[in-house]
């Protein structure tokens, strides 16, 4: 069974009874308190604290994860003991944040992780970064990933899009690219 990076987070959400999905309509939508995006298609979204997970076909097939305003010393992901060791620091350069994201994927069982094309990229007009990743689940299913992010006022903001290499990641990749381009600070 595929276990993308936020499996444990979703599990925690489900256990806490907070994982109710709601429809995100294709119109300008606030993400946390910092910025808004304009999705091109409807998504289903589950929200909990600083995290949001959006999906169209099901989170195990493809998901868009938003991490909103992680503070210095906070773990990148929540849900198991291993995540607690993977802590964000405001002094981290993009290379270290990429490593943190990848280590989170590895903690969820992702194998043969590879990253590529780490480069500077604007995040709603702010200096940010982006990179791509690919990995294989324990069951051998191949996934692709795209991550953009920025540290703004010492807090980390991330958007992570993952999905199966066959069909589901490419299916909405363009929609995600346009969503990233639509980021506008509030």
């Amino acid at each position: 069974m595929p276990r993308p990076a936020t499996y444990a987070l979703l599990l925690a959400l489900l256990l806490s009874g907070c994982a109710t999905y709601s429809l995100v309509e294709p119109k300008r939508t606030p993400i946390g308190d910092l910025y808004t995006v304009e999705p091109q298609i409807p998504w289903s979204a589950a929200k909990s604290g600083k995290y949001e997970i959006w999906t169209v076909d099901g989170r195990l097939l493809q998901q868009l994860q938003f991490v909103n305003g992680l503070e210095d010393g906070e773990p990148m992901f929540k849900g198991n003991e291993q995540y607690k060791k993977q802590v964000f620091r405001k002094s981290m350069p993009a290379s270290d944040i990429m490593e943190l994201v990848v280590d989170g994927l590895a903690s969820d069982g992702a194998q043969k992780l590879a990253t590529r094309n780490l480069k500077p990229a604007p995040f709603g007009g702010q200096p940010g970064f982006r990179f791509e990743a690919n990995f294989v689940t324990k069951d051998g299913l191949e996934y692709e990933g795209l991550v953009v992010g920025a540290i703004i006022k010492d807090k980390l903001y991330l958007i992570k899009y993952t999905g199966t290499r066959a069909h589901y990641h490419p299916k909405h990749k363009e929609h995600v690219e346009r969503l990233i381009e639509s980021i506008r600070m509030q």
Partner: peptide
Amino acid sequence: AEDREMVRSY
């Protein structure tokens, strides 16, 4: 290097 642009930004 894959991350050459990032390193140039550093």
